[in-house]
């Protein structure tokens, strides 16, 4: 697998660190009523077979955090963008 970093170009997998699912949202509340949302955010995953949006850091390169769309059944990388985009 090679990931095309928007800053550095196509680089080998060994330069990147994986964080995981990029679709989960961190709850804004720390209220006890938000527990379920926190459990969801910290522990539960769709874990799809197919397209997966995920965070990678170019840790041995420019250190940018990237959001990568990758097919988990083929390892094909479909899209790479900076994670620090407007949300």
């Amino acid at each position: 697998m090679r990931i095309t970093c928007p800053y550095c170009g196509a680089r080998g997998l060994e330069e990147f660190t994986y964080r995981g699912d990029a679709t989960v949202t961190r709850p804004s509340s720390i209220d006890a009523r938000a527990t379920e949302a926190w459990v969801d955010y910290v522990y539960l995953r769709d874990n799809p077979a197919g397209l997966h949006k995920e965070f990678w850091q170019h840790s041995a390169g420019c250190r940018a955090w990237l959001e990568v769309a990758r097919d988990t059944t083929t390892h094909e990388i479909v899209a790479v963008e900076l994670a620090a985009k407007e949300r």
């Binding site: 060994e14 995920e54 059944t73």
Partner: peptide
């Protein structure tokens, strides 16, 4: 160390 269903790994 990444999500996969491909049942094969990479070189690193």
């Amino acid at each position: 160390g990444y999500n996969t269903y491909a049942q094969r790994g990479n070189l690193p």
